[in-house]
Nucleic acid binder design. Structure first.
Lengths: 228, 228
DNA sequence: TGTCGATATGACCATTCGGTCAACTCTGTT
DNA sequence: AACAGAGTTGACCGAATGGTCATATCGACA
């Protein structure tokens, strides 16, 4: 069992990781029903039988991928309290979410496809963990509003705004590339977009930017970089 | 051919409309590959053969639906010039897009599913018409920035922000309903969300609200309505 | 009544679907 | 060399896939 096939990885671990990555791509592209085990196998460069040998079934594979994505999401979250600085918290949220989208675009799309079909596999998560997380954050935002630290906007809609604005750059990548006529979004694009979102959203709900950031400088970066 | 089967509608027109509506639901839910003609037929309450008799093939049906959605989108757009009022234009755009999302949620999801799989059927549209539309608007936004009517934000990212924030309420409806624990988004929810988006985005990029709107009143609506 | 084009649909086809299974190879241990 | 267990894979299964076609029914006009 301890061969030297691949550096530091047993056969099982190596193949499973290849399969998971391939499956994430295919599921993200075509959804659960639209993805075939055959297509996943070809993307992984393995025979179909071998894929099923490792993952058991199409359904198990899909659930595994969803759980992995939810784990990434959960790992990104940190708790906040009403004594934290609103600007820092909001900006941190935007940047974290954008980083997640950037680092796992296929996973983001997988999640989007799952929600598009009505989230049949994620009902429990949405009504449970995630709902509580949103509620908790919403309460803090409301306290900030009462204290005059931000405009009295509905905190839930604000969270969804941040979610959608960041998620968009993974899910609709094809549209963005088509319209901007690019082959791919580079690191500088992501930096510019993130700065843009931080500026508009913080200013838009009346939050003072956290002190370590000179928001005027962001304009320069955005303007000097990519205005097509 | 002129029977009295159904009020003001020939057999063909009536059946085609039933099929299109059913197909939009199924394609939106499961994507192109994941949708089966059988499932569409069942949703339409017709035998599979009958569906194919009217629409020819699965592919033609899908293309028809995409074209219908693009036509709706194009019908929504009005031209703008640099002499128009930025606040009016931006708010008009947000409200139009939100209305489109509200009136055609299945169509919006269909579009999302198409883009998720890389927009294979929409390459031409994205690189052509839509790209020119975005460019034209971006130029106007830039002129406004130069005139000091708005912050010097990247106009393309601004358009995508509006697109994503509005699109989200169709595509991720399942997530929103799950988190907010509702059965459906009502008319009042959509009004509140639209007002919220107008407030944050206009303020966020430094645009003075158009005069006929008292933006302070929007807070009241938002706050008084739904704060969970 | 007979005719004709539009409508309707079950039977059928080749292909692909998810999944099973038996047979096989490979590798490390005895 | 013999064995064991993990890894590998082609053959195969019943069901579902998109699509065709022959046949049957319908309503309008002669």
């Amino acid at each position: 069992m301890t061969s030297m096939n691949s550096p530091e990885l047993g056969t099982r671990a190596r193949n499973e990781s290849v399969i998971l990555e391939a499956a994430e791509r295919v599921f993200a592209c075509h959804g659960y029903r639209g993805a075939s085990v055959q297509a996943i196998a070809e993307a992984a460069g393995l025979p179909k039988s071998n894929v099923l040998y490792y993952v058991g079934s199409k359904r198990k594979l899909y659930v595994t991928l969803l759980e992995r994505m939810m784990a990434r999401w959960n790992a990104m979250l940190d708790d906040i309290g009403e004594d934290d600085d609103p600007g820092e918290v909001l900006e941190g949220f935007i940047r974290s979410k954008m980083r997640l989208t950037r680092q796992h675009p296929q996973g983001s799309r997988l999640f989007a496809a799952e929600v598009l079909q009505g989230a049949p596999f994620l009902q429990e998560y949405l009504h449970g963990e995630l709902r509580e997380w949103v509620r908790a954050r919403a309460r803090v935002f409301e306290r900030w509003s009462e204290k005059g630290l931000m405009d009295p906007v509905d905190p839930v809609w604000l969270i969804f705004l941040i979610w959608s604005a960041t998620q968009h750059y993974a899910d609709f990548e094809a549209q963005i590339l088509g319209i901007t006529d690019q082959a791919a979004l580079g690191e500088s694009d992501y930096r510019a977009i993130t700065d843009f979102l931080c500026h508009v959203i913080l200013k838009g709900c009346g939050v003072r930017p956290s002190s370590d950031v000179d928001s005027e400088r962001h304009y320069q970066v955005i303007q000097g970089k990519e205005t097509t």
